[in-house]
Design a protein around this nucleic acid. Structure first.
Lengths: 145, 145
DNA sequence: CAATAAGGTTGCAAATCACAACTTAATTCC
DNA sequence: GGAATTAAGTTGTGATTTGCAACCTTATTG
C-alpha cells in the first residue's frame, strides 16, 4: 500500500484507516468484541494464518487497540484484550454492520445487534447536528479547526 | 485475501467489509463524498495508480456504491456518482472519522465535520437502545433474527 | 518421560500492487 | 485542418504482501 503517508495526512479518516482499515485487523477487533482473547481462539474462530495473526496482533498492540496481558503466571500464555481506544471502535463496527444489514442483506440480516437488557434491537445510527437533528451528507462540510 | 468466503458469511460486518473494507475503496468513497466525480480528479486528488483506480471504480460500480454516468454526449467522458447505498456510508465514515479525531489526534483534529447551516460541529455518534439510552459494548449482544 | 498444547517464527510459492508506458477517441490550439 | 492536449483507460513488469505448511520452544498432562 503505497498510499500518501498516513502519519502526516491531516484527514483523520485516512489516519483511522491506516490504524484499523484492514480486513484482518477489523475481524480480530470484532472477534475481541465478542469476547475472544487467546491467540489460538482467534486463530480457530477466524481461520487466519498464524503468522498473519501474529503480525496483526502485534500491530494492534503497538497502536494501543489491544493490550497483551500475561495469563497464567509463567509467561507462556497470553491474552489480548481491548483497550478503551479499541473498545471505542464499537460505534464504527456498528455503523458498518448496520449499513450491511440494510444494503447487503436488504433489511433481513441473519444476526441482530440487541440491547442485552431488553433484547430489543439497537437504533440505527444517525449523524446529528448540535440540536439533535439528523444530518444528510449534503448538509455537512469540512472546516479547519 | 484468502478469507472465509464473504458471500456466505452470516456476519454482516464481514459482508460489509468485503464490499468496502479496502483502503483505496474507502478513500475513493470519501473523495466522492467531497464531490469528486471524474476519473482524473480521483487520480490526482488521491495520488492513486490509474490501473488500481480503474479496478476499484469498476468494483464499486458492480456493488452499486457508485454509478457510472455518461457526461458529455460522446461516451468518452464519464462521471462516477454515489448511489443511495454509497451515500449511506456517510455514517460509517463519520464514525471512523470521529474515532480517529479522538484517539489519533487526541481531540485536536485539524479538520472538523460541521453542519453546513450553522457551522457547528456534528455530535459524536452513539449506539442507542430502543429508548434512546447510549449503550456500551458490554451492554449489547448478537441475536439471531 | 513421551505427548500435547500454546504461542509463535521461518521459508517459499502465489497473489496483489505500484509505476511507467502505451492506446484510443475527442477536443482545443494555431 | 493538422498538431497537441485531455480524458479514460489497458498492459507489462518488477516489488511487496499474503497464505500455507513446517518447524521451534517452553510448559503442562498422562
Amino acid at each position: 500500500m503505497h498510499r500518501p503517508d498516513p502519519t502526516t495526512d491531516p484527514c483523520s479518516l485516512a489516519r483511522g484507516l491506516a490504524e484499523v482499515g484492514d480486513w484482518w485487523s477489523l475481524m480480530i477487533i470484532r472477534e475481541a468484541m465478542y469476547g475472544t482473547r487467546r491467540f489460538s481462539d482467534f486463530q480457530q474462530n477466524l481461520g487466519i494464518a498464524r503468522n498473519i495473526l501474529s503480525d496483526r496482533l502485534n500491530k494492534l498492540v503497538e497502536r494501543d487497540i489491544l493490550r497483551k496481558v500475561d495469563a497464567g503466571e509463567h509467561g507462556t500464555r497470553f491474552e489480548y484484550r481491548l483497550t478503551d481506544k479499541g473498545r471505542d471502535l464499537f460505534v464504527v463496527l456498528t455503523a458498518l454492520r448496520q449499513w450491511a444489514d440494510k444494503w447487503v442483506f436488504e433489511n433481513e440480516p441473519p444476526l441482530l445487534l440487541v440491547d442485552r437488557a431488553s433484547a430489543r434491537p439497537v437504533q440505527p445510527l444517525q449523524v446529528l447536528d448540535a440540536d439533535g437533528q439528523a444530518l444528510k451528507l449534503h448538509q455537512v462540510a469540512i472546516a479547519t479547526n
